[in-house]
């Protein structure tokens, strides 16, 4: 039946997560572990991401956004639930089976400083993945890495520099280059711009946009700044206490939120316009 249609899910979403649960057990006991309690970091979430689209993930700090990303990527073993990538179940796969998938799904981490090894040169940092996955080596590796650096707006001459010689925004680009090295289809961005000032934020957001257009990437984008999330996302999911409380079209969620928590969140977003924020303050003190 399924001859030739091995890529299968022509119409289905690229990623489909159903009832994903990740609990952290709190163990105790002198010699033998007893589970005394658990942190319900992710408590049964379902969502999908279509190819070429961006799903924004917002929510309270500690609501399980980072944990959800890690569990989907199988960097953390989910407690239960299903994760389908291109129609194929990946939850519960062994490390070996996951290895080829690592090329297709990548993560950009929140802290550009901490996630780069200070003793390695930029070329190594970006090229390591290519080497490990045996995609390229020697001269070809260097050409490929230089190409990547150029693509994220760095120059090939940065190849031999160390991370500390770069500004925050440039470091974040290095992280992006590293994530893109293997030509992934799906990229998880965990607060990639939180530590950066607005003009650098804008550079990074635009870069992600361009890369999406050029390479047909799909993003899951986590951030506190709802303005940025709305800008980059097609759809937004709002998390609270380990659950998704609302999903919908980005503008829809921001302009006509349905859930109470979402409303609360949006009401707290500071307006970068003194007159309007003053007016809002007066409204709230009056009401």
């Amino acid at each position: 039946m399924s001859d030739g249609a091995s890529t299968g899910t022509a119409g289905g979403p690229l990623l489909e997560v159903t009832d994903l649960v990740k609990h952290f057990p709190i163990k105790s006991g002198l010699l033998v572990d007893r589970e005394v309690d658990q942190v319900r970091a992710v408590d049964g979430i379902s969502f999908y991401v279509n190819k070429g689209e961006t799903l924004g993930l917002v929510g309270e700090s500690g609501s399980g956004k980072s944990t959800a990303c890690r569990a989907v990527l199988q960097l953390l073993k989910p407690t239960s639930g299903s994760v389908k990538f291109e129609g194929r179940e990946i939850a519960g796969l062994s490390r070996r089976e996951l290895r080829p998938l690592r090329r297709e799904m990548q993560m950009i981490f929140q802290d550009p400083y901490a996630s780069l090894n200070p003793r390695k040169r930029i070329g190594q940092i970006v090229g390591d993945q290519l080497k490990i996955q045996k995609v390229a080596s020697g001269k070809e590796l260097r050409t490929q890495v230089e190409g990547l650096l150029e693509r994220v707006g760095l120059s090939p001459e940065h190849y031999n520099r160390f991370p500390h010689e770069f500004s925050g925004g440039q470091r974040q680009r290095i992280g992006i280059a590293r994530a893109l090295a293997l030509g992934p289809k799906l990229v998880f961005c965990d607060e990639p711009v939180s530590a950066l000032d607005v003009s650098i934020q804008a550079q990074i957001v635009n870069l992600l946009d361009d890369l999406q257009d050029e390479m047909g990437l799909t993003y899951v984008f986590v951030a506190h700044d709802i303005g940025v999330v709305r800008h980059i996302s097609d759809r937004i999911a709002v998390m609270n206490h380990g659950k998704i409380v609302e999903t919908g079209d980005a503008d829809q969620v921001c302009e006509h939120p349905r859930d109470d928590y979402t409303k609360k969140l949006l009401a707290a977003v500071p307006i970068p316009d003194p007159r309007e924020s003053r007016a809002r303050r007066e409204r709230t003190t009056a009401g």
């Binding site: 607005v198 003009s199 804008a202």
Partner: peptide, 20 residues
């Protein structure tokens, strides 16, 4: 440049964020 790079929830989103 700083003001131009802002993302605002209460305004339609621009196609691209202006950057410096």
């Amino acid at each position: 440049g700083l003001l131009g790079s802002l993302t605002r929830l209460d305004q339609p989103r621009p196609h691209r964020l202006p950057q410096i």
